[in-house]
Design a protein around this nucleic acid. Structure first.
Length: 434
RNA sequence: GCCGGGGUGGUGUAGCCUGGUUAGCACAGGGGACUGUGGAUCCCCUAGCCCGGGUUCAAAUCCCGGCCCCGGCCCCA
């Protein structure tokens, strides 16, 4: 026999898991819409060129890329930001600003699966296009905070950094390979201080520069303690302006009520090289080996890269497969009952009785009661056994004797109490018992 | 792409080191004992050694390769 397994890095989602996921998606969706974001969906695959344009040739290694029968080079989407930017350029450049979109969709990245990382995974995200104001950054960061809160999560922080400041920092140190430096800085938490210093030296920094990097990564915490030091470290006008922006951002977050969850961490670079200014990532403490549970930032030149008018934009995405296990481990996901409310059982195989069972099941369903009847044709004893296993609270028993008097039997499976009721009163009786 | 640990019915496992009955057990599933009353008991049935190759008289067991899972690295758009 041929056994076909799942493709590496993919998951089957079973009813219990789907119910929980749907719960999480719904909570997030409510908040997204409350903030005035509207749902969109773009194709699952795009021209590979779209993703190359944004991030260069190297990225193709992590794409699910293939050639279709028409010879087109296409790729499954690794995220939705590129597609959104394409859509915006194609059709929405003249739409009233800002454009506020959200999505909940699956993404594909060809990487080695490990904790919190699959090859197909889902993200719930938003993009806010057309505003360069810090209010837009604050709006999406506050929305991200509210989204996590809506799922019941309380222990998390949104750590905020700034790519522009990192660029300024690299310039200040006279480093040409600013991306390389950022990658190094991004890894600071993964190694010891000594190893970090050693790798900075390997990178070619002198003692003074290493010291500056060390003071940069010290810039973590609440703005009132971090910003004064930051103003000392950064000297350029551009940097000072950006710091002023961060200062305002946190004032705005106070007004949004999201301040308590926000921290500065100027060591955050985030991988995506299209980010241009404020970037952020959400972290929730856990012992599951899961790092960030979401991230985002400002990408002011992506639209232009895709051939549009220069248009500022910002957004974020929440990693569902990272969020859910954390919620689960904290007991924040509701138990969902997949069982029916009523199980209808009939006695004997007479067509007349079977038809009656079907009709009564439909009547129950029409009145909004989750009802099933025994499609397997079990004998009464087995049927009750089955209902018990399903943990169905109420069973309706339909048999010739009762029916002769126009009645059926309604049984409470917990107490074992039961009574014969008129067929027309079944719905009322069942509802009373639920 | 690299490194480490794994893979036995649907699920959880025993057996593997030290090759040798019909691969055992539990749960789940189907049927029956029991013809209008469940949660119990008993009986029967269904169903498995990830795939391929090698060694051997003989492979779930030893060896090689692949696939997949768990974790880490790289990378993380």
């Amino acid at each position: 026999m041929v056994k076909i397994e799942r493709v590496k890095g993919t998951r089957d989602l079973l009813p219990e898991q789907m119910a929980k996921r749907r719960y999480v998606f719904e909570r997030i969706r409510e908040v997204f819409e409350l903030y005035g974001f509207n749902e969109i969906l773009t194709p699952t695959f795009e021209y590979t060129r779209l993703f190359q344009l944004r991030s260069g040739e190297e990225v193709v290694n992590q794409l699910y890329a293939f050639r279709d029968k028409g010879g087109r080079e296409v790729s499954l989407r690794p995220d939705l930001t590129s597609s959104v930017a394409r859509l915006f350029v194609n059709q929405f450049q003249n739409a009233p600003k800002p454009v506020k979109w959200y999505y909940m969709a699956n993404m594909f990245r060809y990487e080695e699966p490990q904790s919190g990382r699959l090859r197909e995974f889902w993200q719930a995200g938003v993009e806010l296009i057309g505003s360069a104001n810090v209010e837009a950054d604050a709006e999406v960061i506050a929305l991200m905070v509210e989204s996590y809160l809506a799922t019941g999560l309380r222990e998390f922080t949104v750590n905020i950094g700034d790519r522009l400041l990192l660029d300024e920092f690299a310039k200040m140190l006279g480093v040409d390979d600013d991306i390389g430096l950022m990658r190094l800085i991004d890894k600071k938490d993964k190694m010891s201080r000594e190893d970090f210093i050693a790798s900075l030296r390997d990178f070619g920094l002198n003692d003074g520069a290493v010291g500056k990097v060390l003071s940069l990564i010290e810039l973590k915490g609440k703005p009132d303690e971090v910003l004064p030091k930051a103003y000392e470290l950064f000297t350029s006008e551009v940097a000072k302006k950006e710091l002023k922006k961060i200062e305002e951002l946190f004032e705005l977050l106070k007004a949004y009520g999201a301040y308590n969850y926000a921290l500065i961490d100027f060591g955050i670079a985030r991988g995506f090289d299209y980010y241009t200014s404020i970037v952020f990532e959400a972290i929730a403490p856990n012992d599951l080996g899961i790092g960030s549970i979401g991230g985002g930032g400002r990408y002011d030149n992506l639209v232009e890269v895709f051939g549009g008018k220069p248009t500022p934009a910002t957004g974020f995405a929440i990693g569902i497969e990272r969020l859910i296990p954390i919620l689960e481990s904290k007991g924040l996901l509701p138990e969902v009952a997949l069982r029916p409310d009523v199980f209808v059982v009939y006695i004997g195989r007479d067509l007349e009785i079977r038809l009656k069972a079907t009709e009564i099941t439909q009547v129950l369903r029409k009145s909004g009661i989750k009802a099933e009847y025994d499609l397997q044709g079990r004998k009464l004893r087995k049927a009750l056994d089955h209902a018990n296993r399903l943990e169905v609270p109420v069973v309706v028993i339909i048999g010739r004797k009762d029916l002769a008097e126009g009645k059926v039997t309604v049984r409470d499976m917990k107490t074992g109490e039961q009574r014969a009721v008129e067929v027309e009163k079944v719905v009322g009786e069942v509802r009373r018992m639920l």
